[in-house]
Amino acid sequence: MQNFIPTRRAAMALILAGTALTGATGQAVAQDITLGALRLTSHSPTYIALERGYFEDEGLNVELAFFESSAAMAVGVAGGDLDYGVTSISGGLMNLAQKGAVKVIGGALAEDPDVQGHVILASNAAFEDGVTEPAQLAGRSFGVTTAGSSFHYMLSRIAEGEGFDIADVQMKPLQKVGAIIGALSSGQVDGWAIQPSIGKRLVEEGAAHKIGDLSDYAPDYQVTAVFTSTGTAEGEREQTEAFLRALSHGVADYNAAFVDGTADEAEVTELTEIVHQYVSTDVDDARFAKDMAEGSMRINEGLSLSTSSLQSQLDWMQDEGLVSGDITLEMLVDPSYVETN
């Protein structure tokens, strides 16, 4: 876990014995919460909600804790270092749910056949050697963070769709997205699947070739979810509902600006600038605006959750022996907070 980054808008909360007090004006002091985040465009609603004061409006004083992997964030929530997290479904998260430590309470990033989703890439060396479509990933190497990660699951969907055994692909666990980017760009791994905001940039910069779309293999994939500790889900309902309302407001702004195209130009510019404070800060403004305009995936309105996709992911991980066969969807999900399907 890296250092906490406090919101610009946050006021200091007064805490006594873990309970928020009221200030001299009689108004309730904001409740402190810590939220895990990744420096990816898929976390844009978090930054929008933060900078536009949506959390503050709900009486929440939010601090961000930045991570470089989904697994570490899940451990942070389970261990009490974080109140909430937004990241991909992983075997690690499922194992923590079996222990009664965490609950998924909402959905976030999702594949939508009508919107550009994850792109399947080949390194330049692999492409020149004949890897020009996903079926040709058999016998090659593929970048993942860890076994049981979203990247591992995406590879499984490609393998199943193309009729080859996933065991025929050499997975290279590189722990961090940045490390996979470096390995793909230098030809140390042959293939990868990643959000279009990153994938399209790699292609346009000549660092990789696009060879397919994940939506052809997993059109209803619930990529990321919102989760919290079981104690918070069960014992802090008012706070959790306030958190989800604020984040949902950020989702609505994000989708309007970058997915549905219903926001005006000034709104798009403002939101792009907000996100760029946190994501790809080394990329120039024009390039980042292009990434947001052309590479933003849909995030579920109202943070609705595809439990059918989660069940498919759980079934696969159990079939692969990555998680216990005793884990159930009920252990993983608290369906009482958002719409599910």
Score class of each variant (00 low, 15 high):
residue 2 Q to L: 14
residue 9 R to C: 00
residue 12 M to L: 15
residue 16 L to T: 10
residue 18 G to D: 08
residue 22 T to P: 01
residue 26 G to R: 06
residue 26 G to H: 11
residue 26 G to V: 05
residue 27 Q to A: 15
residue 28 A to P: 09
residue 38 L to V: 01
residue 40 L to K: 12
residue 57 D to M: 01
residue 58 E to F: 03
residue 64 L to G: 03
residue 69 S to T: 12
residue 83 D to N: 10
residue 87 T to Y: 15
residue 88 S to M: 02
residue 89 I to C: 05
residue 90 S to T: 13
residue 93 L to K: 03
residue 94 M to T: 02
residue 96 L to C: 13
residue 100 G to H: 01
residue 100 G to W: 02
residue 101 A to G: 00
residue 114 D to H: 13
residue 128 E to Y: 00
residue 132 T to E: 07
residue 135 A to S: 15
residue 136 Q to F: 07
residue 137 L to N: 05
residue 138 A to N: 04
residue 143 G to H: 08
residue 144 V to H: 00
residue 145 T to Y: 02
residue 145 T to L: 13
residue 155 L to F: 04
residue 156 S to E: 02
residue 158 I to P: 06
residue 161 G to D: 04
residue 165 D to H: 09
residue 166 I to N: 01
residue 171 M to Y: 00
residue 179 A to G: 02
residue 180 I to H: 10
residue 182 G to P: 00
residue 189 V to H: 11
residue 203 V to N: 04
residue 211 I to V: 06
residue 215 S to D: 13
residue 216 D to I: 02
residue 218 A to K: 05
residue 220 D to M: 12
residue 223 V to H: 15
residue 225 A to L: 11
residue 227 F to A: 09
residue 236 E to W: 00
residue 239 Q to Y: 04
residue 246 A to I: 09
residue 251 V to F: 04
residue 251 V to D: 03
residue 261 G to D: 04
residue 270 E to P: 03
residue 275 V to L: 01
residue 294 E to K: 12
residue 296 S to M: 06
residue 298 R to Q: 10
residue 302 G to S: 08
residue 310 L to A: 06
residue 315 D to N: 15
residue 317 M to P: 07
residue 325 G to V: 12
residue 326 D to G: 11
residue 333 V to Y: 12
residue 334 D to T: 06
residue 336 S to P: 11
residue 338 V to S: 05
residue 341 N to E: 14
